[in-house]
Design a protein around this nucleic acid. Structure first.
Lengths: 234, 234
DNA sequence: CGGGATGTTGATGGCAGTCAAGCTCGGTGG
DNA sequence: CCACCGAGCTTGACTGCCATCAACATCCCG
């Protein structure tokens, strides 16, 4: 028990994850049902349509949450980073597929046991509610993008989100950012095709907004103002 | 107190709304801070960007939740019907605009007081969590539509949703449905333009899937199977 | 150094947006 | 009762953005 508790106290996402607000004593309860699991890039945690057996906290890495049409087209409906919560408590069946985009570590709980603990550990349900509402806000913003914005606006906005995520608030150009997903995933995230993503990026390069060293996942933002103008025209 | 409690017991959405799972005794607490408010068609309950002052239950009517770009394009990110919860507890600022699409009745609570009561009344926070997760599922399905489906698929899927919402499970064609929103709102909901919505509807008419008596908000679904084939091609 | 995965670039076409005109329907007032 | 009017809806002509198909370049890893 003490060992289990210590395991949580040492956790790298102790402060940012769901368990952050939980009392030290209650941590042991959580810890007792949690198991670490590593996922390789491309490995799937849960499939849409399968029985909904688990919840988890992301300890490290990055995962995508996807929904698919009957004929196989895929839409990324969310990205998960260290500290994020994964899963759908109280649902019998999973409605989304969760896939690791890179090596990831998770702290996994059996769903039903996790639900029971939520009723016992004060603050846990509240914390999850806040996270779920934040996810909903995120989803709504993404709906706005998917429904109303042009390819240009989507790419520029995506890059700005990345800058805000990785760089300090008052960072000055140029800022080097590491795109955590492939072009294909960018396309699925933004509701575009790979080719359109690629074309818009080279357009940004021509405009001088970014530089694309060695055609890969590193992007150098040379002029943030240009990106902001393109993301919000008008 | 007894009067207040009775007011809730008589409520037409007592069973379906958030307060459905609340003890009769606790209802009085909720009732004490709730106020009825009627909204005319087109009236706005909350503006995106304004201080987030209230939450509410929809007693009757229909409302839209919208997000907008800086240059005025609008995306409907959700519809609210009788029994649905409105608002963003724990947020200082509202991120969406909520507008009545038709005459609507709400049961309004001051946000901060509602938050306090959530901490006191057992089951309330849990019920809200479940609703929020349902909204998130809804939002994800809509993201899939906005990102990946053609105009044809969007319209057919939308009509099928309406059928499922209004008609009994085993209803046989033809089914008459009442579209609760204007063409313009359909467009904003589906990420299309008014003209495209109109064209796709007449296309469905030509295909024999629907009939459009007197060009308005009533649609007769003649052949549900056609709609299903169009909504899920491939 | 090869081979597969990933990313870029080019040519083309179709779907849906835009602009514009006409239609339908309900309401209003002469 | 009918003429008028305006909002909402439909239809048409045209344009343009982005998807599609295809070839090529680059990167990565054995």
């Amino acid at each position: 028990m003490a060992i289990a508790s210590n395991r949580c106290l040492d956790c790298t996402v102790r402060d940012t994850a769901l368990c952050g607000g939980v009392d030290i004593d209650d941590l042991a309860t959580l810890s007792a049902i949690g198991r670490r699991r590593a996922l390789g890039a491309g490995q799937v945690l849960t499939w849409a349509g399968d029985a909904n057996l688990l919840c988890a906290n992301v300890v490290a890495g990055i995962l995508k949450v996807t929904a698919s049409t009957a004929n196989g087209r895929e839409q990324i409906v969310g990205l998960l980073f260290a500290g994020d919560f994964v899963g759908q408590p109280f649902a019998e069946e999973s409605t989304v597929t969760v896939t690791a985009l890179a090596e990831s570590d998770l702290c996994i709980y059996p769903r039903e046991r996790f639900e029971r603990i939520m009723g016992e550990v004060p603050g846990l349900e509240h914390a999850l509610l806040r996270r779920t509402m934040a996810s909903l806000n995120d989803a709504r913003e993404r709906m706005l993008t998917l429904g109303q914005r042009s390819a240009q606006e989507r790419i520029a906005g995506f890059l700005l989100d990345l800058v805000d995520r990785t760089a300090p608030f008052d960072a000055i150009d140029p800022i080097s950012i590491d795109v955590p997903v492939s072009r294909g995933d960018m396309a699925d995230l933004l509701g575009l095709t790979i080719e359109t993503v690629s074309r818009q990026l080279t357009r940004l390069k021509v405009l001088g907004a970014v530089a694309l060293p060695r055609a890969g996942r590193t992007i150098l933002v040379r002029d943030r103002a240009i990106l902001e103008a393109l993301a919000n025209p008008g």
